[in-house]
Simulated assay, not measured.
Amino acid sequence: MSDTPSERSAENRDADAQRRLVRDRYAEVASDDGGSCCSGTGATSDDACCEDTTGTDSERLGYSPEDIAAVTDGADLGLGCGNPKAIADLSAGERVLDLGSGAGFDCFLAAREVGPEGQVIGVDMTPEMVEKARANAEDTDGENVAFRLGEIEHLPVADASVDVVISNCVINLSPAKDQVFAEAFRALAPGGRLAVSDVVKTAPLPEDIASDPDSLAACVAGASTVETVEDLLADAGFVDIRVEPNADSAAFISEWDDDHDPSEYIRSATIEARKPTR
């Protein structure tokens, strides 16, 4: 599946302007304690798009009630599209890097898995999110968790310094996904692995959605096809690449926009890959 001209134009929008758009959007979310990818216009936890009688938002994404209860209030902002911890298969003592860590929800869950001998680093480009995550770490007593301000295209970590890279519905927001995967590859130690939940494009986007800045910030317009993600990972040097869309994700993705049904064009997917040992 090839991109339409309008989609290629959207992807080539000014990178700095795109980052400002995303940063402003998630600064508002961090300040308001509300909003999620279910709306590009600043939805709050009271909005109908996030209501579901079968469970909380995060339960619908694959988190257990125990996961949710284990983390301090305010860390789970409902911004994801899956559960990267569930596919990361974390072990005690491992070093984990979370790209676009937000208020720290996935970092705190990963910290429980790797234990006191492990380490978790969250990187986010929004100062308000980093401040919120650090405050949550104090409430959680997360001594093996650290949060750093930075862009996922320019990660503030050393070469070969982590064992696992995770991310939850963030890479689609980047104007330079090739650089994100190259940076993840650099940060991973030989044999390290990438375990990401993100959205992928399953059909061409209508022009009004592809060119809409709000649609980009709402985790829709920035999605790439499965083939593109596979190619970007391979170009970065990864092997054992697997990108698997989740058909069931249409149930919650359809609620992300009041004017369109994004599930006609995107799905949540698990994205896994490994850095070769040599």
Rank of each mutant, 00 (worst) to 15 (best):
D46C: 08
E51N: 11
G35L: 07
D98A: 03
I68K: 01
D73Q: 12
D52H: 13
I121R: 02
C50W: 09
G122P: 10
V29I: 15
D89N: 13
A17R: 08
A75Y: 10
I87A: 09
D124N: 06
D57E: 09
D47I: 14
A103R: 01
A17D: 08
G118L: 01
G100H: 01
A103D: 02
E113T: 05
R13D: 05
S39A: 15
G74A: 12
A110E: 03
D47L: 13
G78L: 10
E117I: 01
G104I: 10
I87C: 07
A103E: 01
E59T: 07
S39P: 09
I68H: 03
G93S: 11
N83K: 12
A111K: 00
G115Y: 07
G82W: 00
I121V: 13
A48N: 14
D24E: 15
T41M: 09
A48W: 15
G34K: 06
P84S: 11
R25Y: 12
D76V: 10
D67R: 09
V22H: 01
A70K: 04
G80Q: 04
L61C: 11
C37K: 02
G35E: 07
V96R: 00
R13K: 07
N83I: 14
T56N: 12
A43Q: 02
G55M: 08
V114W: 02
G35I: 06
C49R: 08
R23V: 05
G100F: 05
G40F: 13
D76C: 12
C37A: 13
S58W: 07
V96N: 05
S91Y: 00
G82M: 09
G55C: 11
L109P: 03
P127T: 11
Y26Q: 05
G42A: 08
A27V: 08
G55F: 08
D47M: 14
S101F: 04
D76G: 09
A69L: 14
L77P: 00
E117W: 00
C49K: 08
I121A: 00
T72D: 12
G115I: 13
F105Y: 10
Y63F: 11
V29K: 04
I121L: 01
V22R: 01
R13C: 00
C49G: 10
S64N: 10
L99K: 03
D106C: 06
R23T: 09
I121M: 00
R60Y: 00
L77V: 07
G55E: 11
A70W: 11
C38F: 14
R95P: 02
T72W: 02
Q18G: 04
S91R: 10
S31V: 03
R20Q: 03
V123N: 01
D57T: 12
G118A: 09
A70P: 06
D46T: 15
G104H: 05
T126Q: 04
D124G: 04
R25E: 06
Y26A: 09
S45Y: 12
R112Y: 08
V71W: 03
A86N: 10
P127M: 09
E94T: 06
T41N: 14
G78W: 07
V29L: 13
A88P: 06
D73C: 06
L77W: 00
D47A: 15
D14E: 12
T72I: 14
M129Q: 15
V120R: 02
G118Q: 02
F105C: 04
L97E: 04
E59I: 06
E117S: 11
